[in-house]
Design a binder for these strands. Structure first.
Length: 434
RNA sequence: GGAGAAAUGGCAGAGUGGUCGAAUGCACUGGUCUUGAAAACCAGCGUACCGCAAGGUACCGGGGGUUCGAAUCCCUCUUUCUCCGCCA
């Protein structure tokens, strides 16, 4: 979330930039400031009364020691009177703070100045293309991946439905091996690029889900595991299945003060990702296009605020390198204000052209969150002036598995089978799926 | 799942009702000394908020309570450790 002080100091800018997103609750900005005003005034009064009582308590102690009971009792009465007022002010304080937080939770991140205006994904701008001409498939080899999956018996959607339900595909034989090879390939490339490999938990607690901003914004999109404990409304095992490794990996640094010299902090990890995908029925859901569980290697960086946009472009280059090695035609889009995620300041999406489906599939999303996550995470560093400052967090998929598999199958199919790109052969240990 | 113990600053660890935001040691930062380093010595060293400032307030796992006054007493929750049981 944004800090109130940032909103105070940049009110006009915040409003102008949020307009780009089509943010419809602009009154929340002024509401936040006015709640913060109330908070300040209240704290001022409250602190004064508390100071009075603290002082009085010390006097009472001293008077008791001297045996001056009457004088002590007199002051006691004054303290008691203050206590009532204090209670009231404290309640006002708590309510105001809560109300302020509720308002701040509703305000999305301020888009970077380079974010194009626009409402939907149709307004996204092509930032770069990674191909010369879009591939055209041989008439004898132009099947969509769900048919290739059946033809070579490598992905079994029906059995996935039997075991769990729709959107939980079963990978078999070379299909399973291809996935494992891709994961290894991505992790190896990330390690080579200086990312520390981590294997985080796949379930996270509420604090972690809050830290990276999945809560309260995306409550309904995550699988939730809690069990009732007794009859009093309490729960045990209250966890969320991670929708991305971003959540556990970024939360490694929740409530941490890092050394400025340690920037940038680079981490990568492979995890399955679980998404309920509520509200996306019927659209682009065939085969691997949209599933409830998929694998992903995520890269995460924690960067100095002055350097985070360099970092973002470094991450972009890393993802490009992967796609080039996989010999896939891609393009990079700058997401417009309306399509930008709630927590992001600037996001680039990578799309790979799926030749058989004749459409672009999103395979990676690389974002700079600036201080939006760091503020909730309380992820800070001491700057060269000796002051505490929020760090910048960034992350990107490098890469998301299910759709990459779909693109590989479709783009590299030949009448003789599906050929593996050169860079991947060392990992798959086979050259063709046939 | 059963029994017991514990939770204090970056770490270790004292503190059982007022003079405690908290001893001491280590770590860290600056300085003295040294050709340099080490050692020794001196000084500094939590976070957030309010305030132009002086200064003030809050925080000793979380929440609540007792008291004029709580790190310290009471209740409750959570977590960790040890032992037993179960188990990939």
């Amino acid at each position: 979330m944004l800090t109130v002080s940032y909103i105070r100091e940049n009110t006009a800018l915040v409003k102008e930039r949020l307009t780009k997103r089509g943010f419809g609750q602009m009154d929340k900005i002024d509401e936040a400031i006015s709640l913060d005003d109330t908070r300040k005034v209240t704290q001022n009064e409250l602190d004064q009364l508390l100071a009075e009582n603290n002082k009085a308590s010390k006097e009472i102690g001293a008077l008791f020691k001297q045996g001056k009971r009457d004088e002590a009792t007199e002051i006691q009465q004054k303290v008691a009177a203050n206590k009532e007022t204090i209670k009231g002010l404290q309640a006002t304080m708590d309510n105001t703070k809560n109300a302020l937080n509720e308002v701040l939770y509703l305000i999305p991140n301020v888009p970077h100045e380079s974010v194009p205006a626009g409402q939907t994904d149709e307004d996204n701008e092509v930032f770069k293309t990674g191909y010369e001409t879009l591939p055209e498939l041989d008439a004898n080899a132009s099947l969509p991946h769900w048919e290739l999956a059946k033809k070579y018996d490598i992905i079994d959607f029906e059995t996935g439905v039997k075991i769990t339900g729709a959107g939980f595909p079963l990978f078999k034989g070379k299909g399973a091996q291809l996935k494992r090879a891709l994961i290894n390939f991505f992790l190896y490339e990330a390690s080579e690029a200086g990312y520390l490999e981590v294997m985080p938990p796949h379930l996270v607690n509420e604090k972690s889900a809050f830290g990276t901003g999945q809560l309260p914004d995306k409550e309904g999109q995550m699988y939730h595991t809690r069990q009732p404990k007794g009859d009093d409304g309490a729960f045990v095992d209250d966890f969320y299945l991670i929708p991305t490794a971003e959540v556990p990996v970024t939360n490694i640094y929740r409530d941490e003060i890092v050394n400025e010299a340690d920037f940038p902090i680079r981490m990568c990890g492979h995890t399955p990702c679980f998404r309920r995908e509520v509200g996306s029925y019927g659209k682009d859901v065939r085969g691997l296009n949209r599933v409830h569980q998929f694998d992903k290697v995520e890269i995460v960086q924690i960067a100095h605020p002055d350097k985070s946009y360099d970092t973002l472009h470094e991450m972009l280059a890393h993802v490009e390198g992967l796609l080039n090695k996989l010999e896939l035609p891609y393009r990079i889009l700058t997401l417009c204000g309306g399509d930008l995620g709630f927590t992001s300041a600037l996001t680039y999406d990578f799309e790979v052209y799926s030749a058989a489906q004749k459409k672009w599939l999103e395979v990676s999303s690389v974002s700079n969150f600036e201080t939006f996550q760091a503020n909730r995470l309380k992820l800070r560093f001491r700057n060269s002036d000796g002051k505490m400052q929020l760090a910048h967090t960034l992350n990107g998929s490098a890469l998301a598995l299910a759709r990459i598999v779909a693109c590989l199958l479709e783009n590299h199919q030949t009448p003789d089978g599906i050929r593996m790109p050169e860079a991947l052969k060392a990992y798959t240990r086979f050259e063709m799926i046939d």
